[in-house]
């Protein structure tokens, strides 16, 4: 089974994101960037499939600027075999990313594509589902467990109120939720080896995909802040306040 994994370069999850004063977006200058955490889980799952003898080859793909090669190197250091960068400095929306990935799928013919369930920058949670739709493939999104079978996958999904298990016909799309696995840290020898692994580059034009955005962001603001309240001295005072002042009991 050949596996394709999609990864995105995003603001590191430890960075306290600040909105620009002029409302044009968030501060991205000199901010630490990393692989989207959900994509790390996706890569880890692919590597585990390979280690278990279920996957034959892992191809990592990213859509983004030249610097996204760093993210691809991380995927290669974790265990992907080779990588493809669809290079663009433009902001690419999930629909366009899905279209670009579709062209990569057409060339690479994987049996399974694993993606993170959402990117922690735009929080859209769309790309995997959209790719599945464009390919006419089955989807198992928000996966917490993946088991392989003959021509199919069994995927346990995190749904409201518990877990749902579905069987997917291959080829299929899986998106990784938080508890699918714990991604490894790449070892130094693997990081060195990753430097020699190939990264192919192409552009959206090469793919024949129009990536013009459909949404216009009119402004970006910081969320309304809740004012801090008061600190109380005792449980009795709390109950009193909740009953009289707040009226919620």
């Amino acid at each position: 089974m050949k596996v394709l994994v999609a990864v995105k370069r995003v603001v590191d999850y430890n960075v306290a994101v600040r909105v620009k004063q002029d409302g044009t977006g968030v501060e991205l200058d000199n901010v630490k960037m990393s692989m989207n955490p959900f994509d790390e889980i996706a890569v880890e799952e692919a590597v585990r499939l390979k280690e278990a003898g279920k996957a034959s080859e892992i191809v990592a793909v990213s859509v983004g600027p030249q610097k996204a090669t760093e993210t691809l190197r991380t995927a290669l250091a974790m265990g992907a075999d080779r990588a493809i960068l669809v290079k663009t400095d433009a902001k690419v929306e999930p629909l366009a990313v899905a279209k670009l990935l579709k062209t990569v799928v057409a060339e690479e013919a994987p049996d399974l594509v694993i993606l993170g369930k959402q990117a922690i920058d735009d929080d859209s949670n769309q790309t995997g589902q959209m790719l599945a739709a464009l390919l006419g493939w089955s989807q198992g999104v928000f996966a917490s467990k993946v088991e392989t079978g003959e021509g199919m996958l069994t995927v346990t999904r995190e749904v409201d109120g518990g877990l749902q298990t579905v069987e997917l016909k291959l080829p299929a799309i899986v998106t990784a939720d938080l508890r699918l696995n714990e991604p490894r840290y790449a070892s130094l020898p693997n990081i060195m080896k990753a430097k020699k692994k190939p990264i192919a580059e192409k552009t959206p034009e090469d793919c024949g995909v129009d990536i013009a955005p459909r949404l216009t962001v009119l402004k970006t603001e910081a969320p309304k802040k809740r004012g801090g309240g008061v600190k109380l001295a005792s449980v009795d005072e709390l109950i009193e306040k909740l009953k009289t002042e707040a009226g919620v009991l």
């Binding site: 603001v11 994101v17 909105v19 929080d123 949404l215 216009t216 402004k219 970006t220 969320p223």
Partner: peptide, 15 residues
Amino acid sequence: RPTYAGNAIETVTSS
């Protein structure tokens, strides 16, 4: 809609 884990609120319009 919220982005960046609720740290930025975007106002968007669709074409």
